[in-house]
Design a protein around this nucleic acid. Structure first.
Lengths: 336, 336
DNA sequence: AAGTTAACTGTAATCGATTACATTTAACGC
DNA sequence: GCGTTAAATGTAATCGATTACAGTTAACTT
């Protein structure tokens, strides 16, 4: 269509001058600048981004691998990513992996084909496969909310899940609870281990035992909360307080507890994780751990951006602070 | 790094042969094919996507303009878009507009600079500005869930909002309701007009009057539901049934109604719109209109894909069917 | 006024592919 | 065995920019 050549002819200058006028106006005299700009306007010229990119070797795009788009927590992170990326001149390619390694792999290879300059991983199942183990070190990538065990050089942004587990436990013990249940998401993930370890550490300190039967779950879905409660209530000694490892699980759990004719928190206390925007409007409003999702996204882009431009990183791992949001899904037992 | 030239040297053939082997294997003999593939593997060669794109003039990307990422309904649409795009070989660029015209404009211009081949609009504030009025016709774009008034040639995928409004109204009238309130989202949008017109048409048919004071709202947020209920309850004759124009508003509305010590649905019935995944687990479970969000996303890509490849469209406007999901946030008045 | 230098602009190579066209090789018919 | 045709491969132009290098012009020095 309208390419730089056409504009250069219209302005009566060389293509080099047009390019300079647009990218580095100081290099041309005001007169030619004006001439060129007039031609640009007249032709409705816009530089072809593909051509620029192929020449510079930078696509100025980053790809985000996310297991599930319909999760407000992830989306909040992505808002942060999007905003920061925009500010730094990157565009964001969406990679909905649906938790499938094959798709992760496909999206990750975008970096190898110059379609993207770097990658942000919100999923946790990297390395994608055995023979890609070297990928992690060769392409710019950052993991958010999940560090990758066995990949020591791989930067990540995450929460202090261990401390959050401890805080939640202290909170519930403060209400006098002694029997705890856990409904977890992905059991193989690092955050799961950290949170559970945090919980157990406090229980040990307080001399409270934790039966492994009290740990159920398997995915971060509402249905997991429902099934989890069913399993926990089927125990001989059901828990009086249940840790849910995200707010969706908590929503399902509370729903199912109420369906059993029990009350939250008078019969069972429930905690969530993430503090999604609906959690304050649940019935009862959910006690949960707030993660600074938006900032996590922003930080990830900042780190990734540095990796892409090969600037040295001051630190490759960042643990962000959480805050415990105490609402009304937790409380002392039995108190009407 | 490893470009096609290096591979061609390694294999002892020309770059043309390498290109053909990868793109059109039938054009080379099995022997050379083997030679080339071996060199490709050995060099770890992957074609530079930017170079391919600049040559073919196709970026194989589409950009999606979405006003708000933390909205499960939009995200469900985007899941459909992502899935269909992937199948058709497109990648999805995320354009979080935050409802700002300036950002919409910026993202839309990606199509003009060959960064994307087409655009899917989930927002409704197109045309972006006066002098871009011609944009709509010159670049491939599709609107989902909102048709653009005054742009007759602009394809869209949407719901039969008018009929949905009617269905909801019949449902509530069936429970004996006579005084209705509406908490709407964006008041200037076309879907708002359609839904409202549907509601009013039934009311007129049934001889029920609708006071414009009963229409409140302004945005698709939980807080709108809260404020909306406050305004409606402040009326001399508060409504006994409230239409909320999305599920988030309904969540806020129910929360606020309960906070006033009133019960849903015994004192006030509430309906939502969209059927987001949490709506079944609200307390009470929400009566709402299911939109086939995933399919809407898929259809949008199919239409856009045809526009991009300049195939003729069989029809430019598509009205998808809804279904009324009757749950427990609606019911007869007073019945305990 | 001639020489030196700086500022500006143009020419052409380049990025990494694809592909029209030219050339070589093989296959086949008679 | 030679001509015709088809198949395979190579050469080089091309996509639309950017930029090293060269060339031109202007400005300044003495």
């Amino acid at each position: 269509m309208t390419n730089i050549k056409k504009v250069s002819q219209l302005a009566g200058v060389s293509t080099a001058t047009v390019s300079r006028t647009l990218k580095n106006p100081d290099l041309v005299t005001p007169q030619t600048r004006e001439k060129v700009m007039k031609a640009v306007k007249q032709a409705g010229y816009r530089p072809n981004w593909l051509a620029t990119s192929v020449k510079t070797g930078k696509s100025n795009s980053i790809v985000v691998l996310v297991p599930n788009l319909v999760n407000p927590f992830f989306m909040r992170i992505i808002e942060g990513i999007e905003q920061a990326a925009q500010e730094q001149g990157f565009s964001v390619l969406l990679g909905d992996t649906q938790g499938k390694a094959e798709r992760e792999h496909e999206y990750a290879s975008m970096v190898l084909t110059n379609r993207a300059d770097g990658l942000i991983q919100l999923d946790h199942s990297f390395p994608f496969s055995e023979n890609d183990a070297d990928l992690a070190s060769s392409i710019p990538m950052v993991s958010v909310c999940e560090r990758i065990s066995g990949h020591p050089d791989y930067p990540f942004i995450e929460l202090d899940n261990y401390a959050a587990g401890r805080a939640l436990t202290h909170h519930l013990i403060g209400y006098g609870h002694q029997r705890f249940g856990v409904i977890a998401g992905q059991l193989t993930s690092q955050i799961h281990h950290d949170r559970l370890a945090g919980i157990k550490s406090v229980l040990t300190e307080e001399g409270i035992s934790f039966d492994e039967d009290m740990l159920v779950g398997g995915s971060y879905r509402i249905e997991t909360g429902i099934e989890g409660v069913q399993q926990l209530l089927a125990q001989k000694q059901p828990p009086t307080a249940v840790f849910c490892f995200n707010d969706d699980i908590a929503l399902g759990a509370i729903h199912e507890i109420k369906r059993h004719g029990l009350r939250v928190p008078q019969d069972i206390s429930v905690t969530g994780f993430d503090n999604v925007r609906t959690s304050a409007y649940m019935d009862p409003p959910l006690t949960t751990v707030d993660q600074p999702a938006y900032d996590m996204g922003r930080r990830a882009v900042e780190v990734l951006s540095k990796m892409i431009s090969r600037e040295p990183l001051t630190r490759t791992r960042e643990i962000l602070p959480f805050s415990l949001i105490e609402r009304h899904s937790t409380g002392p037992l039995g108190k009407d």
